[in-house]
Simulated assay, not measured.
Amino acid sequence: MPSFKTSDMSSDIHVDLSNGLENVPVSIEWSIAVTKFPEFQYSPDNIQGPGCTIDPSEVTLPGCSCLSRSCFPENCSCLQTCGQTYDTTGTRLNLNKTNSGYCSPLFECNALCTCSDACSNRVVQRGLRLRLEVYSTEKRGWGVRTLEAIPHGTFVCEYAGEVISFEEARRRQRAQRSEDNNYIIGVREHAGTGCVTETFVDPAMVGNVGRFLNHACQPNLFMQPVRVHSVVPRLALFAGRNIDAQEELTFDYSGGYSNQPPVELLSKQSDAAIQASRADGLQRKECHCGANHCVQFLPLDVSIIN
């Protein structure tokens, strides 16, 4: 995987941040006047990190036996798991559910499925298809904007990085300085009474373009867990509305989409323990998203999607 350093950049060279690892180049608007560019390894996919017992690249889910070019809910085992997810153009269906405060994981056809690569139930696995640009924002450091219009419901990119354990996520948070960014996103999935699955992704050292996305209290993207080949979900970001070219792309770090109050983790802590963690070296940072109903502070801890 390529690594990037500030010395690799210049004001007159256009750099592909992904170094050819994505389907389309990820541009960087570079100027010697902007803040120092972070050093990290680019990976379009999740990788196994400390404490993670499952390799996210390993194919562990069963495949369907469909022989058609594209699968249909009535006879596809993948679609029967959660219903039809996308229309024939790969756009998300049932978008009204994204405002409920809860979301259900999606299941795409995978490497063991007998349907074609053109199946409409293969979207996130196809990777980045849009022209995105990393640039220096006025108040919020680096951010990501789109170079083309994005229709509502379109898959934009993943939030990919190291998949780590809860304990490693807490260790990394406590080791952070007040001026450091917290990239760790946690997803909690409920599957019936008492059945909870948690996934923690940290793209600080290894990650993709998603690591540069800023928080907004009224974002234009929403996050959805999507399972493809592995039981480890991919954290996919979809357009929550029509997005214009040159518009900054944002999502709510707390997991909500309708400007709901941040969910302050942690899944294995009591309310008292969460309150105590506020005095344990974790500093709340001001939110500069500029939304009409800004909650003023970024989420304190790892974010949660139910």
Results as ranks from 00 to 15, higher is better:
C78R: 10
C78Q: 11
L79V: 06
L79K: 10
T81C: 12
C82P: 00
C82V: 09
G83L: 05
T85H: 06
T85E: 07
Y86N: 00
D87A: 01
T89M: 02
G90K: 00
T91A: 01
T91K: 03
N94Y: 08
N94M: 05
K97W: 04
K97H: 09
S100Y: 08
G101C: 10
C103G: 13
C103F: 08
S104H: 13
P105E: 12
F107E: 06
C109L: 08
C109W: 08
A111G: 03
A111S: 15
L112R: 15
C113Q: 04
C113V: 07
C115R: 05
S116Y: 14
D117R: 03
D117P: 02
C119V: 02
S120Q: 09
S120M: 06
N121A: 09
N121R: 04
R122K: 14
V123M: 09
V123K: 02
V124E: 11
V124Y: 10
Q125F: 06
R126M: 13
R131T: 03
Y135M: 08
Y135L: 13
Y135A: 04
S136Y: 07
S136Q: 15
S136D: 12
S136E: 10
T137K: 03
E138S: 13
E138T: 12
E138F: 00
K139R: 07
R140V: 06
W142N: 01
W142G: 01
G143N: 06
V144L: 04
V144H: 06
R145P: 03
T146F: 01
T146H: 05
E148I: 06
A149Q: 12
P151A: 15
P151G: 15
P151C: 14
P151K: 10
H152F: 14
H152L: 12
T154V: 04
F155V: 08
F155S: 06
C157F: 00
C157H: 02
C157Q: 01
G161D: 07
E162M: 11
S165T: 01
F166L: 04
E167M: 03
E168R: 02
E168T: 07
E168Q: 12
R170F: 00
R172C: 06
Q173W: 05
R174L: 13
A175C: 10
A175K: 11
Q176M: 15
E179Y: 11
D180L: 10
D180M: 06
D180P: 04
D180W: 10
N182M: 12
N182V: 08
Y183M: 02
Y183E: 04
I184L: 07
I185M: 10
G186S: 15
G186Y: 12
G186C: 15
V187P: 01
V187G: 04
R188M: 14
R188L: 11
E189R: 08
E189G: 04
H190Q: 14
H190F: 14
H190D: 14
H190W: 11
H190G: 09
A191V: 13
A191E: 10
G192C: 12
T193G: 13
G194D: 11
G194P: 14
G194Q: 13
G194V: 13
T197V: 12
T197D: 14
E198P: 00
T199L: 14
F200M: 03
F200T: 05
F200E: 02
F200Q: 02
D202E: 05
M205F: 05
G207D: 10
G207I: 00
G207N: 07
V209W: 13
R211I: 02
F212I: 00
F212T: 00
L213C: 07
L213E: 02
C217T: 03
P219S: 05
L221W: 00
